[in-house]
Simulated assay, not measured.
Amino acid sequence: MIEQKQLSEVIELWKTNKKQYVKKSSFAAYMLLIENHLLPVFGNNFVLEESDVQKFVFKKLEAGLSHKTIKDILIVLKMIMKFGAKNKWLEYTPFDIQFPTEREKHSIEVLSRADQKKIMNYIQEHFTFRNLGVYICLSAGIRIGEICALTWEDIDTDSGVINVRQTIQRIYLIEDGKRRTELILDTPKTKNSIREIPISKDLLRILKPFKKIVNPSFFVLTNDAKPTEPRTYRSYYKNLMKELKMPELKFHGLRHSFATRCIESNCDYKTVSVLLGHSNISTTLNLYVHPNMEQKKKAIEQMFKGLR
Rank of each mutant, 00 (worst) to 15 (best):
I213Q: 15
I142K: 01
T228P: 06
A299I: 12
I136D: 10
Q124I: 05
L7E: 10
K68P: 04
A149R: 15
E50V: 01
S257M: 11
I263K: 10
L287Y: 08
S66N: 10
M79L: 05
G277S: 12
K245V: 00
S112C: 11
L285M: 15
E146G: 02
N215S: 03
I119N: 06
I2G: 04
S235C: 12
F83W: 09
Y135Q: 05
G160V: 04
K55D: 14
R130A: 03
D224R: 03
Q20S: 04
L275E: 07
V161E: 10
I171L: 08
L32P: 02
R205V: 01
I162F: 04
F129I: 02
W152E: 11
I34M: 13
A63T: 11
E35W: 03
K189W: 07
N266C: 08
Q54M: 00
M120V: 02
I213S: 11
E49A: 00
V110G: 05
K55N: 14
M1W: 12
C137H: 07
W14R: 13
E12S: 15
A114R: 09
P291W: 11
Y122A: 08
Y92W: 12
E153D: 15
V134P: 06
Q98C: 01
I194T: 08
M246I: 05
A140S: 09
K78R: 11
P291C: 14
K82F: 01
M79G: 01
E196L: 09
S66G: 08
H290F: 14
W89H: 04
N121L: 14
T260F: 08
F99M: 08
G253V: 13
P40S: 12
R195G: 00
K71G: 03
N239C: 06
T271L: 04
Y236W: 14
Q295M: 14
G43S: 05
I119H: 07
H256L: 07
N44R: 00
L173N: 13
E35G: 01
Y21G: 11
T157Q: 02
A63M: 13
E294D: 15
K238N: 12
V110Q: 11
Q98L: 03
Q124A: 09
Y30P: 00
R179N: 07
I206Y: 10
N292M: 13
R308K: 13
I136S: 02
L39A: 08
K211P: 00
L276Y: 08
L90M: 03
W14P: 14
T93C: 06
Y92V: 05
L132I: 02
P100H: 10
S217D: 10
T228K: 12
Q54I: 01
K68L: 04
E264Y: 12
R205K: 12
R143F: 13
E146W: 07
E102R: 15
